[in-house]
Simulated assay, not measured.
Amino acid sequence: MPDYPVVSSDVFGWSEVKLSGWEGVSPQEAFEPALASHLIVIHTTPQPVRVFERADGYRGEGTAKQGDINLFSAGDMSYCRWDGALSFQRLDLSPALTDKVAAELELPIGSGSAIDFGRHIRLQDDRITQMAQWLLEDLRNGGLGGKLYVDSLVRMLSVHLLHRYGTASGHREAVPHRLVRKQLDGALQYIHAYLEQDISLDDIAAAAHVSSSHLVRLFKEATGLAPHQYVIRERINKAQELLVKGSSVHEVAASLGFSDQSHLHRHFKRIVGVTPREYIQSFR
């Protein structure tokens, strides 16, 4: 495929999912004899495009419309030929991650067996589309949400895929009902101890003694915020303290793990209602 993605997660080093956006890719063939990851392709071309597709157990010709989703499992063969310019989003999801999430949810996938989502052509699934869109928006915003935000979305996507399309989709997960006070305290203490670092979802889950697959829901029920939202809010609270004490905007951004001053600026104004410099001036 000689055309290049207009946006890609490669520049951010995402490890558990790779996301790319493609626009107006010229008519051609795309063939992968054995997919290394679970593959999700979301068609975004405004007009219908004629396609011919092959996968393990499937061979057919049809029309790909905006919003159609193709879902393939790792290890599958994937072939597609299209007759007009094609736009799409591609997500490659790590099999190691989905196996890990299945184990955390206590889904009976069988000893030594891997998750299989089957093969789905021109699927409609609003949840997949929405989560992919959130990930794509984060890419276009320069990774504004950070690692914790991406981790949370990828776990949510994995849980949805497992329950709706996975081999264990007919089974209910063993779900803890809430975070007990000791678990919540462990999570909050960890966040505050490492507020200036690039905290991961797994780190917080380990501190709370709960699986990362359950943490997002339980944390939000306990605090009213998703983990990444809570971390950002606490960083902004700390930023306010440091600015009042005389630290520069550049120093605050660097010390609290923001990628640059503009990253701090965007979150600060969204939460506080004014820019960092306007906030400093209010105390003079």
Rank of each mutant, 00 (worst) to 15 (best):
Y194F: 13
A193S: 15
H192M: 05
A193G: 14
H171F: 10
V175I: 15
A168Q: 07
V159Y: 08
G166C: 04
V175Q: 13
T167F: 03
H171R: 10
L179Q: 02
R181I: 06
Y165A: 01
H160D: 04
K182H: 14
H160E: 06
A193R: 10
Y194I: 02
H192D: 07
G166R: 01
A187Y: 00
L188D: 02
Y194G: 06
Q183S: 12
S200R: 11
H160V: 03
L184A: 06
H177I: 11
L188R: 02
A174Y: 09
V159C: 08
R172N: 12
K182T: 13
L184S: 01
R181C: 02
E173V: 14
L188E: 04
G186V: 03
L195D: 00
V159W: 04
L161S: 04
R181W: 09
G186L: 06
A174I: 13
A168N: 08
L188N: 02
L179G: 02
V159S: 06
A174N: 13
Y165W: 10
L201T: 03
S169I: 03
A193L: 08
R164W: 11
Y190A: 01
Y190S: 00
A168D: 06
Q189K: 14
S169E: 08
I191P: 00
Q197F: 04
I191T: 04
V175E: 14
V175N: 12
I199R: 00
Q197C: 10
Y190E: 03
K182M: 12
R178P: 00
L184R: 04
G166K: 00
L188S: 01
L188K: 06
L201R: 01
P176N: 12
V180L: 14
P176S: 13
R164E: 11
L201W: 05
Q189F: 12
Y194E: 09
S169Q: 14
G170Q: 02
A168F: 03
Y190M: 05
V175M: 14
S169L: 05
L188Q: 04
A168T: 10
L201H: 07
L162C: 05
R181V: 10
H160C: 05
H171N: 09
Y194V: 05
Y165G: 03
R164T: 10
A187W: 01
Q197W: 08
L195P: 00
D198M: 08
Y165S: 05
A168P: 03
G166L: 06
S200G: 15
H163N: 07
S200M: 10
R172H: 14
R172E: 14
H171C: 05
L162V: 06
G186S: 05
H177C: 11
R178W: 01
H171K: 09
V159P: 03
A193I: 05
V159M: 12
T167K: 12
H171P: 01
H160R: 05
H177K: 15
L161Y: 08
Q189W: 11
Q183V: 09
L161A: 01
R164L: 07
V159A: 11
L179P: 00
Y165R: 04
I199H: 00
H163E: 09
Q183A: 13
K182E: 15
G186Y: 01
D185L: 10
H177A: 15
A187I: 02
A174L: 15
Y165C: 04
L162E: 03
E173A: 15
